[in-house]
Amino acid sequence: MTARPESGASAGGLIIFLNGTSSSGKSSIARALLGVLGETYFHMSVDAFHAMRSGPALPPDELAAMLERTWRGFHRAVAGMAAAGNDLVVDHLFSEPWRLHDCLSLFDPSNVVLVGVHCSLPELERRERARGDRPAGLAARQFDRVHAHGVYDLECDTERAGAQDCARRIKEFLPRRRFPTAFEQMTARPASQPAGAPEPARNDIQAGA
């Protein structure tokens, strides 16, 4: 891959997209990034969008439809903020293929830095029990899905580095990021699989929690 000249960059804002299972450390990295980047960034978290919701409990079919509307709205809010020129740190997860495909259709792929946030399943389960605010087994259900697309610009192992180390590593990567980006590669490859089908296995590197 080759570095793209600065003149080829989009006028839109940069999206640092943290993708990992529940309890993998995305939010901790996002908070650390805001402290080390030295520029104005917005942290956009899908959990914050869910927290905006009010109203009565919904039956399962209505809840599922409402959650999908929330995720789709979140993607479009991210796209709109970036299109207006805002730089973003996004905390989300591709636990279903349609979410990735929706983001691929909405974001400027040259302006997305896709960061994989990894952690072993035993450690995820330990963190899940310790925090006590997630359904039991949530991370296990997401584990094989979240990284199935297999392409990243940078990856983190949150058992081997803390949030500050990860944030610094991401910051150091930004001025030397390579093209085509992970989003550009995925946008360009043939649509050989329908939405919802399993996708190729992930690769690994390391970084923080």
Rank of each mutant, 00 (worst) to 15 (best):
E155Y: 01
A65D: 05
A3E: 06
L121H: 05
A77V: 11
H50N: 09
P56I: 00
E125K: 12
F42L: 15
D108F: 05
S45L: 00
R31F: 06
T21A: 10
C119R: 00
G35R: 08
D165W: 00
V117D: 02
A195W: 03
A65C: 02
R76S: 13
E199D: 03
P59W: 06
E199K: 01
L34E: 10
V90I: 10
S120W: 02
D87Y: 01
R169N: 09
T187A: 14
P109L: 08
E125N: 05
Q164V: 15
G13S: 07
D153N: 09
G8Y: 07
F49G: 02
S105T: 04
N19A: 06
A148I: 01
M81H: 09
A197F: 11
A84D: 14
A148N: 06
R69N: 09
R76M: 14
L104R: 09
L34D: 08
D157H: 10
A3N: 03
V113A: 14
E172Q: 14
S27H: 11
P60A: 11
V90R: 07
P200T: 01
A32H: 01
S95H: 13
K171A: 15
L93Q: 11
R169V: 07
A161C: 13
D47N: 05
C119P: 01
F179T: 07
Y41I: 08
G38H: 07
C156W: 03
F183P: 15
L104M: 12
Y41V: 11
A209Q: 09
A148L: 03
A207Q: 08
Q206P: 09
T40R: 15
A57L: 08
A136P: 13
R177E: 07
V36M: 00
S24Q: 03
G116S: 13
R127M: 01
P97S: 14
F17G: 05
A207C: 15
S10R: 11
N111H: 15
L14A: 00
D47P: 03
H147V: 04
C119W: 00
E68W: 05
